[in-house]
Design a binder for these strands. Sequence first.
DNA 1: TCAATATGTAACTACAATGATTACAGGTAA
DNA 2: TTACCTGTAATCATTGTAGTTACATATTGA
Lengths: 147, 147
Amino acid sequence: MSISSRFSVGIHILTLIEIDKDGVSSSEYIARSVNTNPAVIRKIMGMLKKAGLIKVQPGIAGAELARDLSDITLLDVYKAVNVVKDNELFSIHENPNPDCSVGRNIQNIIEPHFISAQTALEKTLENVTIENVVNDVKDNEKLNSKH
Amino acid sequence: MSISSRFSVGIHILTLIEIDKDGVSSSEYIARSVNTNPAVIRKIMGMLKKAGLIKVQPGIAGAELARDLSDITLLDVYKAVNVVKDNELFSIHENPNPDCSVGRNIQNIIEPHFISAQTALEKTLENVTIENVVNDVKDNEKLNSKH
DNA sequence: TCAATATGTAACTACAATGATTACAGGTAA
DNA sequence: TTACCTGTAATCATTGTAGTTACATATTGA
């Protein structure tokens, strides 16, 4: 099991839109950078748009961020691209035997621990913004240009 | 996407073995409590055995914990049942375009953030033991028997 | 020794999610 | 009107999950 790469692609898209904000970030252009199909990019951009992270218009090439760089966290992207349903990162087996003391209690006992773990993960993602990622890209580029 | 219920079933199995330690926890008995097929239970028990969490022997009915209750964490179970590969909870799209400043940096920039988030999740799981779960089951049973 | 019973495991199935691809409807602008 | 874009549906190959059946292998009691 792995969380869909829609998440990392979503981050890629937002970062690219910012880095190339003076140009036109069409789905085809972004697809070449991500190395996938434009339709895949358009689908993910549709999710980012629905979540209020970017502005895109039918018929008009390009996209722009709908919020400030520093106001978009990785958690926002994670939620936007719908890779994990709320409180369902972990799945719990259904219909355990109610005639067994373990069976009739296990779900309620396990659930809060699973939610805690998922919350810890999400809090971590919330501490990183697209601005951080953009700056990291710029820093990496500066370092490498010196060699 | 959801992390396989093998994880919650694994917790169920270990808890049941402890609660019924005076009896015989055969795969068929456990399967009735979990409400699934004995072969599914045997497969998961094989993973728990391989990870050194339980003792089982071919031909001999039943199983017992291989370690102290308080020495088995949910993280141990999580790793044992192989629901997520090491550092691969999140997947990152492969082969982004190296001719693009975002494409050639994005993987290295994103990866540490993903690992941090996964680590936060795992640390949370590490703080809960099978002993905690067993005690929760017993406490729930006591509470409900009073009504 | 043999019959009964258990674990270990392979093979097969149905089902769902992912990611790629093609196709096309509908919007925009020169 | 033409060219190009976004939005979206349909299809496909691949993969993981969970259930099921079947059977080899191990153990124990009669």
